[in-house]
Design a protein around this nucleic acid. Structure first.
Lengths: 111, 111
DNA sequence: CTGCTCGCTCACCTCGGGGTAACCACCCAC
DNA sequence: GTGGGTGGTTACCCCGAGGTGAGCGAGCAG
C-alpha cells in the first residue's frame, strides 16, 4: 500500500504499523503463522496465489521488521521454519481489532 | 495495498478491513476527519503531498464504503464537508489498536 | 544418469495506483 | 477584463509491486 508516513503527525503509529504490514500477502502470512510455525513450502500451499519470489521477499521483510523468526535446519533436503516472534504475536492481536470490525460491518453476515 | 481477500479464510475480516483502508492516503484522511468535519481544500492542505485527483478518488471510495459522509452546501463559492460516519468512527477506533502497537514497538521512542 | 524435493534467487514483463497539468463553472474583488 | 478561490474532472505518464519461468545445489530413489 505504501501508506504515507508523515513524521510528527499524530497518527504516525498507525502509519508505522501499516508500513510493516504493507504487502499483498503479509496479513495472510501473519494469520497462517498465528497457528503454529510453518515451512516455506507449507506457506506456499496455505496461501494460494503467492509466488515463491514474493513469498520469500515478504517473509524477509517481516523478519527484518522483527515480526517473524526464521529458523534454518541444516538438513537435506533443506528445511526452514518461520514462526511469529512475541512482537509478531502482539501485532496479530492488534490486527484482531481490525478483523472484528471488518467481520462485523463488512462481511455479508457473520457466520 | 490490494491485500488478498480469500473468501472463507478465517482472517477475511481483516482482509475486508484492509481493502477498505487500502489507498496511500486513507489513514491520513481518517485521522484528519477524526477531529472534526473537514472541507476538500482543508484536507488538501492538512495532508501534504496528496493530489486533488487522488484526494477526490479516495474520499469517494471511503464514501461508498460508508466510512465518510459527504455533505454538499449549495452556496457560492461551493462548499463540501466530509465527516466520519459512525462506521468510520468505529473503524478509527479499531485502527487505534494498530496505532498503539506501532507507537509502542516501532517508533524511535514514544514522546 | 535422470529425476525429484526443498528453498530459494535472478531476469524479464505487466499492470494499475498514483502524480502532473490543464480545464471547467461560478462568483467576487480589483 | 483579470485574477483568485471554490470543488472538482480529464488525459497522459511513470514507476514499482508483484507475477512468470528458469536455474541452482545437495542428496536420495529408481
Amino acid at each position: 500500500m505504501a501508506v504515507t508516513r508523515r513524521p510528527g503527525a499524530d497518527h504516525c503509529g498507525i502509519a508505522a504499523a501499516m508500513s510493516v504490514i504493507d504487502g499483498k500477502w503479509k496479513v495472510s502470512l501473519l494469520w497462517e503463522l498465528e497457528q503454529c510455525p510453518r515451512r516455506f513450502g507449507e506457506l506456499r500451499r496455505l496461501v494460494p496465489g503467492v509466488s515463491e519470489k514474493v513469498l520469500a521477499a515478504q517473509l524477509r521483510e517481516l523478519e527484518t521488521d522483527g515480526i517473524v523468526h526464521r529458523e534454518v535446519y541444516d538438513e537435506v533436503p533443506p528445511r526452514v521454519e518461520y514462526s511469529l516472534t512475541p512482537l509478531g504475536q502482539d501485532l496479530n492481536a492488534a490486527l484482531e481489532a481490525l478483523g472484528q470490525w471488518g467481520a462485523k460491518h463488512l462481511l455479508p453476515d457473520s457466520a
